[in-house]
Write a protein that binds this DNA or RNA. Structure first.
Lengths: 224, 224
DNA sequence: CTTCTTTATATTGTCGACAAAGTTTAGCTT
DNA sequence: AAGCTAAACTTTGTCGACAATATAAAGAAG
């Protein structure tokens, strides 16, 4: 779940993470106005803490704020999804390429073991288990494997929460879960072979598929 | 200068921009500890607005903060430059491709006129004029031309200030200014021809050259 | 009755003070 | 004298109150 294993120290940290999860997982609906006083009573902290949390949420594009007016949770739209995945495809493709170059041998082995474990659970649970958590974990490790601090930050702190928001709020269970596993397998194989170019291509394609999958869901749920 | 033409409303906005410029342009040296009380007296605002400004500076990677300890201006390093330009190459290459696809004809014309104006000033001032401001303006328009909100935000609000910091603090005047103009010319031509693939390739190459140029400067200034 | 103005209300922006955590200095023990 | 402990100090984190701005409501003019 908390795939970043964030080190929480201050009250603002906690509040930020709580608020973020409540937004990503839809307990605070998209488009909702965020009242500072209301939130400060709900989360039992001062307005200063809420304001800091909101500022961080702005940084990862989960809320937007107008001066002297207030902050709103972003709204999800087909165009927003398209643009988000365009950027994601480019950046994660790059991450896969860099991972093929920079991951240590043991990191690659651990990644393979992760997939093995997922495979076991998958057959055990009737091949519908493999989804959100495992997928996020997989991508997270490759991003970290790039060893590029800016790339890691932009993806993990910047875009991924919004990606999760789209996926969670559109209900991520579907026929794609099994095929995604195979794609992961091929990506890891490319990384293990240190084939940078192939790793990037496969990752880009994997994300493109993922986007198409979500977009069809988005059309079915016509409520956007 | 203020290539984003940011709409300043609150006191925190102003303070953020001031602080950002002071950091980017080296008046606050890289690595400096940022004391909240000291800054609040220097900029004549309360600690609350300083804290908000620092939070925004964290979001664009110009300062780092440890809880209960404080914030420091980032330090510049060859590795940091390398990683920054890796990401920049990928994202701006994508921006050029999208710009070739999405810019309106009039936007493309305006871009060409911009280059013409730069060319005039360049010959007039003895071909050493073309630098920082013009370059930033050029790149800024292409980024905007991508019409991808996430891409725009990550680049303009996220990475560009740090790019500027590297360039400013290493002294950006040099033999490259003239050749860079030709590269810009070719990029615009590719965009005008709606050649997405070429636009991306040329932009990536342009940024790669730019990185190499800065890296050599960084080696000469051995003070890093 | 509609529209504009003005007043009232609610929300955000800013501030100074208190609490908590970290850092330095002084004193004690070995 | 060196190293550890504890107290004093400095800095950050949090809070409640006040000021400024925007929204909503009430009243006046047409």
């Amino acid at each position: 779940m908390d795939f970043t294993s964030e080190t929480v120290i201050t009250s603002a940290d906690k509040t930020y993470i709580q608020l973020r999860n409540d937004i990503v997982e839809g307990r605070i609906a998209a488009g909702t106005k965020l009242s500072e006083v209301e939130l400060s009573t709900n989360y039992s902290v001062s307005r200063a803490v809420i304001r800091e949390a909101i500022n961080r949420l702005m940084a990862c594009h989960l809320v937007e704020r107008k001066a002297n007016v207030g902050a709103r949770v972003v709204t999800l739209s087909p165009e927003g999804l398209e643009q988000l995945y365009q950027v994601r495809e480019s950046l994660e493709g790059m991450a896969a390429r860099l991972a093929a170059k920079n991951m240590t041998d043991t990191e690659v082995q651990n990644l393979q073991q992760l997939l093995d474990a997922h495979f076991d659970k998958q057959v055990q649970a009737g091949e519908s288990y493999y989804q959100e958590a495992g997928d996020v974990d997989f991508h997270y490790r490759i991003i970290q494997g790039s060893k590029n601090q800016h790339l890691i930050s932009v993806l993990v702190n910047g875009l991924y929460h919004l990606v999760r928001m789209y996926r969670v709020q559109l209900g991520m269970a579907g026929p794609r879960v099994t095929t995604a596993f195979d794609e992961h397998l091929h990506i890891v194989k490319a990384i293990a072979n240190r084939d940078e170019e192939l790793a990037e291509i496969l990752m880009r394609r994997h994300i493109l598929y993922s986007k198409n999958n979500i977009q069809t869901k988005l059309l079915n749920h016509s409520n956007l």
